[in-house]
């Protein structure tokens, strides 16, 4: 079963839109993707520093996706660590009750900021995976965008939390090396162009169970992103681990529907 660990939706009015979900499912089907992890909605929470209302609207969409398509979507609770921790933890509780199985952090706060601590401590207590954006950019760094080195600091501070570092294509070789010594961090394959040799490098340095497939749809194309993995020079067992095995285990650990399977 192919699991895409990194997708968004882009609803035009910031509300759950069945047509947007249907388009996502249709394109995922075409690429052979069985299950997806929704992170946040680009229409509901477009800001780099989302407000509480934006966070709630985006998470409402995730919970609606899980309710309507429990076999196809998992959803992570999107949080902004600059908000009052009481709000963030209450929002996390609301989302967990609504079927969310992880936490998504983007670029509102750097990954090594102590304001992440209450969220990470709750993640550790509840065995929730945390997917955090990261990128090394020669140009165009945005707001409080984290580097993989900052992800490594976060990972060492919270070794009980399974962390998915987003964007192998963005962090590149340096990013892989940054997290090599952090066994609680896996990297997703999303980000930038389909650079040859990068997945092979990540597998070589991190091992076959620390690389997971992520497309970043609709910013990227499901089929193209899957083809990066299909075209990588890796053995078949590793390919299957990347395309779904490892992510399924992460989701199961957090109590997603795969537990019952």
């Amino acid at each position: 079963m192919i699991v895409d660990g990194h997708i968004h939706l882009h609803s035009s009015d910031g509300q759950y839109d069945p047509a947007v979900a249907a388009r996502c499912l249709h394109l995922a089907d075409r690429a052979g993707i069985a299950r997806m992890v929704y992170l946040f909605d680009l229409g509901a929470a477009p800001s780099v520093d989302p407000t509480g209302d934006e966070i709630r609207r985006s998470n409402d969409i995730g919970m609606e996706l899980v309710a309507r398509h429990p076999d196809r979507f998992a959803a992570f609770c999107y949080l902004n660590p600059s908000h009052d921790p009481a709000f963030s933890l209450a929002e996390l509780d609301r989302c967990l009750a609504g079927g969310c199985t992880g936490i998504k952090l983007w670029i509102s706060v750097h990954a090594d900021d102590p304001r992440l601590d209450p969220i990470m401590e709750r993640a550790a207590a509840m065995r929730l995976p945390v997917l955090h954006h990261a990128w090394y950019k020669a140009t165009g760094f945005a707001y409080n965008e984290s580097t993989p080195a900052e992800i490594a600091i976060l990972a060492r501070k919270h070794p009980a939390v399974p962390i998915v570092m987003a964007h192998l294509g963005g962090g590149g070789h340096r990013g892989v090396i940054d997290i090599e010594g952090c066994p609680n961090v896996v990297v997703d394959t999303s980000g930038a162009q389909p650079h040859a040799g990068l997945i092979e490098f990540a597998v070589d340095r991190l091992g076959p169970d620390r690389v997971v497939f992520g497309s970043d749809w609709p910013i990227r194309d499901f089929a193209v992103q899957r083809a990066k993995v299909d075209g990588a020079r890796i053995d078949e067992a590793t390919r299957q681990a990347i395309l779904g095995g490892t992510m399924s285990r992460l989701l199961a650990r957090a109590g997603s529907p795969e537990v019952a399977r």
Partner: peptide, 30 residues
């Protein structure tokens, strides 16, 4: 893009679009 070729063809007609891999820098399968 999210649905690459159909999205491209909304801007450029098919007779002016060419498949390209940029190999060996990019993965040709993509």
């Amino acid at each position: 893009s999210g649905d690459t070729l159909p999205d491209v063809l909304r801007t450029i007609p098919p007779e002016r679009v060419l498949l390209g891999t940029h190999t060996p820098i990019y993965v040709p399968h993509a």
